[in-house]
Nucleic acid binder design. Structure first.
Lengths: 190, 190
DNA sequence: GTCTATAGAGCGATAGAC
DNA sequence: GTCTATCGCTCTATAGAC
């Protein structure tokens, strides 16, 4: 075999995610990626037919990692403390892998695998929220998700750094308690 | 005058914002912008010293427009209905000018003018929320902002389009009412 | 499966004439 | 203030040799 494989799809994907977190999605070039792997750019095309295909594979990986991060908290019904823990893990993921989180959230050409992972996550959250939220579980889940996703965005834009602004950890606890308090008033009149 | 002005900073800015909304920030090129104005790319540099300077000017414009959209609701203390109205206007702005909204939120090289507009907006919201939120006004404002910003992002990513998901208008009303309900329980024990 | 080489297109920014 | 011309760089993707 004159040309033994010098790389693999897994290796490329892993290196691509590392580069993604360093330079963002727009800054990820196949040339630089190939150079890091000591390959010519052309070699990558044997494993991913296009740049978009590589991005899609990375998005799937992001979805899987997020699910893994949240799953331990979703094995049982969510208590108020469980909601706090779920939120902390969600934010930790978004902070640790900001570009991958972005890619997962904004990749519009969802593969079926990615769609499946998302739906699995969504259904678990809605179900485990039912003891707390009853019939409004889906609405509460969406409100919670919006709040968390927004917190990630505002934190990233530096809004929380302004003088006089609440800080993210404090605001997270406050916001969640506000939601949970509102939830309790809902139980009386569902 | 052998070379009368064929354009102006205002005209360039206006055309740039239009193009921004069509192709996004990454898709805005000085070459294409100049072509639309029937100018050579070089001519733009007389008005904006660099692409970044143009982006900053656009972000300022975005801040001003957002403030204008929200100001009528912020002239008096916010009632619960006022919060709903404020949120509707905020979302309307983010939907109507998504790329400008993005630019405003993510532009990290804030000019002092932009910073000023932002602080003006923030202080107005915090102040007008006080009758509802008391001493937690800043925390509530940040929670509200995070929720709204997140809703914009999730709506854009298509999450709200999934089958079984709540729809944005319903979730907006639900989420706001949840926050407001939580707020009422806070009044008893500030 | 990887290589060299290149097609083909995009971009921001600058120099100097008028 | 706008022009022509161009520098220098980026990128994705393809063709064909080995």
């Amino acid at each position: 075999m004159p040309y033994p494989a010098k790389t693999s799809a897994e290796q490329i994907l892993s290196a691509a995610i590392t580069r993604l977190e360093q330079g963002g999605q727009a800054g990820l070039s196949l040339r630089a990626l190939a150079a890091e792997l000591k390959l010519t750019p052309n070699a990558l095309y044997r494993y991913f037919g296009s740049r978009e295909a590589l991005l899609a594979a990375m998005a799937v990986q992001g979805a899987v990692l997020l699910l893994q991060a949240l799953e331990p908290v979703l094995r049982n019904s969510l208590s108020p403390q469980g909601v706090h823990e779920l939120a902390r893990r969600y934010l930790a993921f978004a902070r640790t892998r900001p570009a991958l989180y972005d890619l997962y959230m904004t990749c519009d050409s969802l593969s079926s695998e990615q769609q499946q992972t998302y739906e699995q996550l969504w259904e678990q959250v809605v179900q485990q929220l039912q003891p707390l939220a009853g019939s409004h579980s889906a609405q509460v889940a969406m409100t919670l998700w919006s709040y968390l996703h927004g917190l990630v965005g505002l934190e990233r834009s530096g809004v929380y750094d302004s003088p006089g602004s609440p800080k993210p950890p404090q605001n997270l606890a406050f916001g969640l308690n506000l939601l949970l308090a509102g939830l309790r008033t809902l139980e009386s009149s569902p």
